[in-house]
């Protein structure tokens, strides 16, 4: 008489053998909203400059398939414009996850209130940080609609919830951008971190 273990092995093996390699269908890549026309699916990121800044989101990474995040448009949150309409530039922008974020870290989920609070608190705890401003999706969307890109079809067709919320961060020393970037990249709720190239740009 076979031991219990042997009987068990034989039975499970027999069940397993009813499946062969030919029965395994290939893994289907989730298309999700990425396959929609990019002007709907694109995460519209707002930048700190009123000039229509094109941020090559796909620069070093490739956004994977059609309809990945398209170049972001510049705009100014309307409350913060300087006299000539240009918003003050932030040293670092922390773009937060939205439901249309293509970044797998975002898991197609908008950043939560708790995540926003956590990020804000941690930013304020950093000695390198001088000022933190949270820009909600709605505010950013308004800024786009009032900004120079307001006629762009991507903006016109975009909904408030498609526009990334973000933190605009001003530093005591602009050279500390990388510190902030490294601290928040990969953190749940964070989609992108955008920083300047380190060159001081004249105010417009």
């Amino acid at each position: 008489m076979n031991s219990t273990e042997e009987q068990l092995r034989a039975a499970m093996s027999a069940v397993g053998d009813t499946l062969g390699q030919e029965d395994i269908r290939p893994l289907a890549r989730p298309a999700g909203r990425r396959s929609h026309p990019s002007r709907r699916a694109a995460l519209i990121a707002t930048a700190a400059s009123v000039a229509a800044v094109v941020i090559g989101v796909s620069i070093a990474t490739g956004s994977g398939g059609s309809g990945g995040p398209r170049p972001a448009l510049g705009s100014s949150p309307s409350a913060r414009t300087t006299p000539d309409g240009a918003p003050p530039k932030a040293d670092v922008l922390i773009m937060l996850c939205g439901r249309t974020s293509a970044n797998p870290t975002c898991d197609r989920t908008a950043v939560t209130r708790a995540q926003v609070d956590g990020i804000k608190n941690d930013l304020m705890d950093m000695p390198a940080v001088r000022k933190v401003e949270f820009v909600s999706s709605r505010e950013a969307h308004e800024g786009l609609l009032n900004g120079p890109a307001r006629d762009d079809p991507v903006v016109v067709g975009g909904r408030p919830e498609d526009v990334a919320a973000m933190f605009r961060v001003d530093l005591r020393d602009p050279d500390d951008r990388r510190i902030v970037m490294n601290a928040f990249l990969g953190r749940p709720g964070v989609d992108l971190v955008v920083t300047g190239d380190g060159t001081a740009l004249p105010p417009r």
């Binding site: 800044v53 620069i59 970037m181 990249l185 990969g186 992108l192 920083t195 300047g196």
Partner: peptide, 8 residues
């Protein structure tokens, strides 16, 4: 005037 240098 802003470039992306990091991604999550």
């Amino acid at each position: 005037d802003l470039i992306l240098i990091g991604r999550a």
